[in-house]
């Protein structure tokens, strides 16, 4: 008995030891990041002088008073991430439901096509996307005249969100289809027999059952939009323009020809990371359920 307990403890100790050993590099990197942001200089993990000046971008623009404030840039990033996440989740859920539950001509082809679309790196599609955005820009109101998101044309947050939605949808549709596939058909049939419409079934019966899927897709979409660089950079004007987002703004600190203040770059990077960490902290359980189904034991 004592021997068994000892074996169990030894097993746990070994497991924890291995976990700690493998996690240590990641932990040390984050620790270094935090120390650096509060230091004038560092040698390894040792700070050679503590300071708050690396965080001064929070209360004054490091590039002069006329430069875009970090808070406006953060708001832009938040709007982009929210708009994109909302559209991706709704459109993915609706199309995935159709693909999972209905039979129609070209269904298989459509599924394959979405997978192929997902395989395209965004860089290869920048030019055609530009032409699409250019066309949208010239559409009255929708192009450039919407409040908050600016519109859906070139140099607007809505335009960037639209492009990113297109890239995120194939992934979203496949993820959501997996969740719908796992829900019992009996549950849906009962609702239909009771007189519910297809839309009611989707909204009232199925959607509540795939909450983990919705949460997981939301997190992925949000993080993807929050960290996006190449699309916002290409389709907005200036690293400090009206539609600038954080990933583009951070480039102001890392110009080719001017000395990079790495401690401030680390601080801005950490600032950019905070919302994602918070978001992840509250939704990690849902995230871990991404490969699971909504209702267990379905047909």
């Amino acid at each position: 008995m004592v021997l068994n307990k000892f074996r169990l403890n030894l097993k746990s100790i070994l497991a924890y030891g291995a976990l700690i050993a493998f996690s240590m590099p990641i932990f040390l990197v984050f620790l270094w990041l935090v120390i650096t942001t509060f230091s004038t200089r560092t040698e390894g993990l040792e700070s050679l002088g503590w300071t708050l000046s690396n965080w001064s971008f929070l209360w004054k623009s490091p590039f002069g008073p006329k430069f875009q404030s970090i808070w406006i840039v953060t708001l832009n990033t938040f709007i982009l991430a929210t708009v994109m996440t909302t559209i991706v989740v709704f459109v993915s859920a609706m199309s995935a439901y159709a693909l999972s539950r209905m039979k129609f001509a070209g269904r298989k082809g459509f599924l394959s096509a979405t997978l192929i679309l997902h395989a395209f790196p965004s860089v290869t599609l920048l030019i055609p996307i530009y032409f699409v955005l250019r066309w949208i820009t010239k559409v009255p109101i929708i192009g450039q005249g919407l409040p908050l998101i600016g519109g859906f044309g070139f140099n607007t947050i809505g335009g960037v969100a639209l492009v990113m939605v297109a890239f995120q949808l194939p992934f979203g549709i496949w993820i959501m289809k997996g969740f719908f596939d796992n829900i019992s058909w009996d549950m849906e049939r009962s609702a239909l027999i009771d007189g519910a419409s297809r839309f009611q079934v989707w909204w009232k019966i199925l959607m509540p059952n795939i909450k983990p899927g919705i949460a997981a897709l939301s997190i992925f979409a949000f993080i993807s939009a929050w960290n996006a660089y190449i699309i916002p950079f290409t389709f907005t004007v200036g690293r400090a323009g009206k539609s600038t987002v954080l990933s583009v703004y951070i480039q102001n600190f890392m110009s080719e020809s001017v000395m990079t203040e790495w401690n401030m770059v680390a601080a801005v990077g950490l600032f950019q990371l905070i919302p994602v960490l918070i978001f992840f902290f509250f939704t990690q359980e849902a995230l871990l359920n991404i490969y699971g189904g909504g209702a267990k034991g379905g047909a």
């Binding site: 250019r134 200036g238 323009g241 102001n252």
Partner: peptide, 26 residues
Amino acid sequence: EVIQDNLDWGEYITEFVLGYGAGESP
């Protein structure tokens, strides 16, 4: 309205060309 940053020259020129195409040039 001033938009001012330290973009590299190549990207700076591309931005103008793309912006012009969309009717959004400075």
